[in-house]
Design a protein around this nucleic acid. Structure first.
Lengths: 138, 138
DNA sequence: ATGACTGCAAAGACTTTGCATCTTT
DNA sequence: AAAGATGCAAAGTCTTTGCAGTCAT
């Protein structure tokens, strides 16, 4: 018998927070965002639900940025930009992901591919501006 | 005055261990691999040197796999496969990385790109074999 | 009433760091 | 001798987990 899944107010709020944010939230971010509305929310619940949503395929990990795992409520393939300065993560909807690549990898290397990630690392607009201002002031 | 860089036996050994391995080692892996030859090696030193090599551009992080950061001694752009079962990381030398993509991202999004990663996630050959055997036994 | 979900706090895993000591230059 | 590199252990950060209580069905 499969484990039943029940509704929970907090679970709904957590999923909603991820889906409504473009920031690719971390557990901590979700926790602090929801705390005002749900004063008795605990960090453990956030982590447990993040795992749950991942297992259900409802969200995906974008990887670990500055020590914190980041999540994405959009599960359609798309690439990301990560700012190495401030840790911002943004979607790059205009950069296409080649779906055929996965098949090529499977055929060439004899592995089974579930998904692939295309991620760019660098400095975001805001941080470049800050760098510029610092350079002037020094 | 810039900080001087001095030779050290352990630093050399650590870099060598990364460069000679195709496993994309973690700090722990390096530590245990070198411990027999360098009984007084400490994990702190491994971590400090990993940071040092990264800052020097001599190695690169491949990201965090199962909670451990993994490193690559090959800094030329190439894509990776990560096994979600066993955490193995392998180079995909036959899958080309499009160098032009970085420029496109810079122009389209007004950011500054340093590098990009193309990573495939799935199940490696060995783990697929294990799955198969388990299925038969059950 | 059952068992899924949660809060809380403790435990766990990985990484960083301070300080005394040892090494390289 | 000066300052960089290390060992050791403590501290720090993020995440997981056990247990008792709560809530959905």
């Amino acid at each position: 018998m499969e484990r039943a899944i029940r509704y929970s107010k907090k679970r709904e709020a957590i999923l909603n927070a991820i889906r409504c944010s473009k920031a690719h939230p971390s557990a901590e971010w979700i926790y602090h965002t929801l705390k005002p509305e749900h004063p008795d929310l605990s960090l453990g619940t956030v982590y447990r639900n993040l795992l749950f949503f991942q297992q259900q395929g409802m969200i995906q990990s974008v990887g670990v940025v500055n020590g914190q795992e980041r999540f994405d409520g959009e599960t359609n393939p798309h690439s990301h930009f990560v700012c190495s300065k401030c840790g911002a993560v943004m979607d790059l909807d205009q950069i296409p992901m080649d779906a055929n690549l996965s098949k090529q990898v499977e055929e060439l290397y004899g592995v089974q591919v579930q998904r692939h990630e295309l991620t760019f690392y660098g400095t975001c607009k805001k941080c470049m501006q800050n760098k510029f201002e610092e350079a002037i002031l020094s």
